[in-house]
């Protein structure tokens, strides 16, 4: 990837990398936090029940964060696929050349067939014209 990509394309690719890192980091951090909470001998000013409730909610939020990061990764995969599909010009060019080759051969085939058909018809037409104009039934 040493080609000179336009600025915004480069920025986009960088943003993909940062998204990947961020999501993975978020997964890891949230997981660590959950583990820490589960271990938890953190003294606080709060009432014990309140503390427990808070921990519960925090864990849920963190779990949801992990899920979010996972889905964000899926989205990232889909985005990268889309980017590749839309910007992979070599493969598009290949497809175009292939298509044009296909159509050219098809065109040639058709042309040849039409030519031979035309020749046959012309020859037959000549005979038929001859026959028609010399017959008495006309």
């Amino acid at each position: 990837m040493h080609r000179n990509l336009p600025q915004n394309k480069e920025a986009l690719l960088k943003s993909y990398t940062t998204r990947l890192k961020e999501d993975v980091k978020s997964m890891l951090e949230n997981f660590e936090e959950i583990i820490k909470l589960a271990k938890g001998d953190n003294e606080s000013q709060l009432n014990r029940m309140t503390q427990i409730e808070q921990d519960t909610f925090e864990m849920q939020v963190r779990a949801a964060n992990i899920v979010r990061a996972g889905e964000s990764l899926m989205k990232l995969v889909s985005d990268i696929k889309q980017y590749l599909i839309l910007n992979d010009f070599p493969s598009v060019n290949e497809a175009i050349t292939q298509n044009s080759k296909l159509f050219r051969t098809k065109q040639q085939e058709c042309d040849q067939k039409l030519m031979s058909l035309r020749d046959d018809i012309a020859a037959d037409l000549y005979d038929l014209e001859d026959e028609y104009f010399t017959s008495i039934y006309k």
């Binding site: 909470l37 589960a38 427990i52 864990m59």
Partner: peptide, 9 residues
């Protein structure tokens, strides 16, 4: 409490 919290997560 933690068990419950972990289960929810």
């Amino acid at each position: 409490g933690r068990k419950k919290a972990l289960a929810a997560a």
